[in-house]
Design a protein around this nucleic acid. Structure first.
Length: 744
RNA sequence: GGGCGCUUAGCUCAGCGGCAGAGCAUUGCAUUCACAUUGCAGGGGUCACAGGUUCAAAUCCUGUAGCGCCCACCA
């Protein structure tokens, strides 16, 4: 059979069709064979509301591994999904609401939740098509969405299990709070930025203190000095006086105070600073709050009441100045915590949140990496990061004051806890806020429940883990916690919950083989999966963590919308084909170093695609009996040489794929195919073809068909297209061909 | 403050004990021939710097500088 191939490979004409061909043949859905060792990867689930960006294209590493293992004959599963991404999604949604002149406060939480669910539903499947465009061999029959009832139920079950094991508690601690987003965060979500601020020296009577936050002086409960500060020892018997309110406070000793900073005396404000809270707790001091969840002043002299923090700071400073209490001010460069999402300065505040006791979970997560049950790659660089984080981990605040996400399954009886603050929209859609005991005579319970926005329950509030009448007083006035789970609490269970939802999968495919992701979510996600995966199953969630490179622009700079240097993967796919983009992201890239991507680079890879196509075209048009030879005989020296070189490729590509050296193996293949096979062997074959040599065809077909197999994981479309044109028998697929081995 | 990484051709980067490499860019020539999305040939490098180990160092060790990243309770 001889075929006339078109001059170029028009990727758009083939990609969609080929993907359907694979899907219809079911090659992405593994056959469970208990005698074989499966190969499993869980896809890092993209956010459901996020269109694809270039980072997602790096999943190509996983696709290479997946296709390689499919061809090796392993039962191979790559499980896709999308994440509801609680905070992220709500942020995007609220921006949209703002455009319509609305805000989250205009709705009760149930309505808001429904709106969010609909919003996500519209976008959720977009990235499914996008992932297909890149050729990813995902098993769509096992696709999961993080807000599926079944998945959510497992997450709630985990919460109950942790609770039963005494690993969940409600703690009243300093939490990182964003007054704009209206929610607290875990330590990881705070982004520290260097800022230029002012350091104010204030006269506290017997002592002068230095602070950047004069507006919080109303919440001061002591002044602390370092015990080594001998000069200040005599102060201990005296009192300090908070200016403006002339409040007398204790002077105490604590080694957390840096004797060299400012005056060596630190004002202690447990309500609005984490260190101060620690000092306060140690010394049994009171915690006062002067800033509320909206970033406005409370519990302060009337003139400052209701002011925003920065306005209050200015007012307080000018009053201090007027009162002669401002000793001096100087500029200070220091780092300030900001909200990773909106950039607002994080307000440390004290109120109760749900925490996980992480120490026992982290200890196991450390142990399993130490004893090699999970290996981190590249080891040298990231294992240390992992251990450092796990060793210093603090309890994990898993509650978010965000609507979009699974609600924490705890219920409060309002009659048993009548000091709970209830925030709701009344019948007339007016916002009502107050303590239950003060409101219950005016507003019926049903009104509160149906218009509910949020609850603030004190640390002492009693709760139960199921809905229904109060187990204590049998009362029916029971409301569920309005906080939702940190998204990472849910995605931290993803390997377990997704596999568990298909009978038999957890037993067979877990622990998964490899988890591949960018290093930026090593702690957010990988660390949490390790802790929760081990907790739930007693087994590690994956045997290898592979951290891949970040995509940067052609000058090595991080891509960002504001810099205008982002590359849209789908545009690249349209213009040059998915294979070209894939190869550009992989070829010549060292392990976990940045990938510098540019239009030129993708175009270069497109040229290689064309080259490959034309090699096929040359062979197909020259050889009238196209086919893969069963054996190779009567070989010339050149034939032997190219076959030996091919065998080297088989060895090195196979080895390279096993140990994640894709940059090397793809580069070797590129060089071999273009500069050895095409430039040298094919050129010299032309004479032999003219002379009627048949042996040369057997070698051409042998080498080329083997190259297609070796190249398939990297460039699935063009290789499958060529296979279909040239070697497929009765529609057989390249991806179902066995991986090449060396025949002697 | 602690830790990590990087520095190799004009650009982006591989290589990580044994003659300094690739892609892009660049220079010259060729080409109705599978492919101009091509071929052949060429120019271009004290492998950041300073020491050390070694028969042999871009590669291993120590230090210095510049850049980048991560962690941390800099009020």
């Amino acid at each position: 059979m001889t075929r006339e191939l078109p001059k170029n490979f028009i990727s758009k004409d083939y990609e969609g069709k080929l993907y359907s061909l694979w899907e219809e043949a079911g090659v992405f859905t593994p056959e469970v064979d208990k005698k074989k060792q499966p190969f499993t990867i869980i896809l890092p689930l993209p956010n459901a509301n996020d269109p694809m960006h270039i980072g997602h294209a790096m999943f190509v590493i996983q696709d290479i591994l997946i296709r390689f293992h499919i061809m090796k004959g392993d039962p191979t599963l790559w499980l896709p999904g999308s994440d509801h991404a609680g905070m992220e999604t709500q942020f995007v949604f609220e921006k949209q609401l703002a455009k319509e002149g609305k805000s989250r406060f205009d709705y009760d939480r149930e309505t808001l939740f429904k709106m969010l669910a609909e919003f996500v539903e519209k976008n959720r499947l977009i990235n499914k098509d996008q992932l297909k465009k890149l050729g990813f061999a995902l098993d769509w029959s096992r696709y999961h969405y993080s807000m599926e009832p079944e998945i959510v139920e497992m997450v709630l079950e985990t919460f109950r299990k942790l609770h039963a094991d005494d690993l969940i508690y409600r703690g009243e601690r300093v939490v990182h709070f964003c007054t704009k987003c209206g929610t607290s965060f875990s330590d990881l979500e705070v982004v520290y930025e260097d800022r230029e601020d002012k350091l104010f020296y204030l006269d506290y009577g017997s002592v002068t203190i230095a602070t950047t936050r004069p507006e919080t002086i109303f919440a001061d409960v002591a002044v602390a000095i370092n015990p080594k500060n001998l000069k200040a020892k005599e102060l201990l018997s005296q009192k300090a006086v908070v200016p403006l309110i002339t409040k007398s406070i204790l002077i105490i000793e604590d080694e957390l105070v840096d004797p060299d900073f400012g005056t060596g005396a630190l004002k202690i404000t447990p309500g609005h600073d984490a260190v101060d809270f620690e000092v306060g707790t140690k010394h049994g001091l009171e915690t006062l709050s002067v800033i509320n969840r909206f970033g406005k002043m409370i519990n302060v002299p009337e003139k400052y009441l209701g002011m925003k923090v920065l306005a209050a700071r200015d007012a307080v400073v000018s009053d201090l100045k007027a009162g002669g209490k401002l000793v001096k001010e100087e500029p200070l460069r220091h780092s300030v915590g900001t909200c990773y999402r909106c950039g607002t300065v994080i307000e440390p505040m004290v109120f109760p949140q749900w925490f996980i006791t992480t120490r026992p979970l982290a200890d196991k997560a450390i142990e399993t990496v130490r004893n090699g049950q999970t290996a981190i790659f590249p080891q040298k660089r990231f294992e240390k990061m992992y251990f450092d984080w796990m060793e210093n981990i603090k309890d994990w605040n898993i509650s978010r004051q965000v609507v979009w996400g699974p609600r924490i399954p705890a219920w409060y009886c309002l009659d048993c806890n009548d000091s709970i603050q209830v925030n709701f929209l009344n019948k007339n859609k007016e916002a009502i806020s107050g303590l239950y005991k003060d409101l219950k005579d005016v507003h019926p319970f049903e009104e509160m429940k149906s218009g509910l926005q949020s609850l603030f329950a004190s640390k002492e509030s009693s709760y139960q883990l199921q809905d229904g009448a109060c187990s204590h007083c049998r009362g029916k006035n029971v409301l569920q916690e309005t906080d939702t789970f940190d998204t990472w609490f849910l995605s931290g269970q993803w390997p377990v919950s997704t596999l568990k939802s298909n009978p038999g999968d957890l037993e067979y495919f877990y622990p998964t083989s490899i988890l591949d992701t960018l290093w930026d979510i090593l702690f957010f996600w990988v660390g949490r999966m390790m802790m929760l995966g081990i907790y739930l199953t007693d087994k590690v969630p994956f045997k290898i963590v592979h951290l891949h490179a970040r995509v940067v622009d052609k000058h090595g700079k991080k891509m960002s919308k504001s810099k205008g240097n982002v590359i849209d993967p789908l545009l690249m796919v349209n213009q040059y084909g998915a294979d070209s983009l894939r190869l550009a992201l992989v070829m010549g890239v060292g392990p976990a170093s940045d990938v510098s991507l540019s239009d030129e680079k993708v175009r270069g890879m497109r040229n290689f695609t064309t080259k490959l196509w034309n090699i096929g075209r040359f062979i197909a048009t020259s050889d009238h009996e196209l086919g893969i030879p069963e054996s190779l005989n009567d070989l010339t020296e050149d034939d032997e040489k190219i076959i030996n070189s091919l065998n080297e490729q088989i060895k090195s590509v196979t080895a390279g794929n096993e140990c994640f050296r894709f940059g090397q193996s793809s580069e070797d293949l590129y060089r071999f195919i273009w500069h050895e096979f095409a430039d040298f062997y094919i050129e010299s074959s032309k004479e032999r073809i003219k002379a009627g040599d048949k042996v040369v065809f057997s070698v051409l077909n042998h080498v080329f068909s083997t190259c297609l197999k070796l190249l398939h994981p990297f460039m699935p479309f063009v290789t499958e297209a060529l296979w279909q044109e040239m070697y497929s028998e009765n529609g057989s697929l390249l991806i179902k061909e066995p991986w090449p081995s060396i025949k002697d």
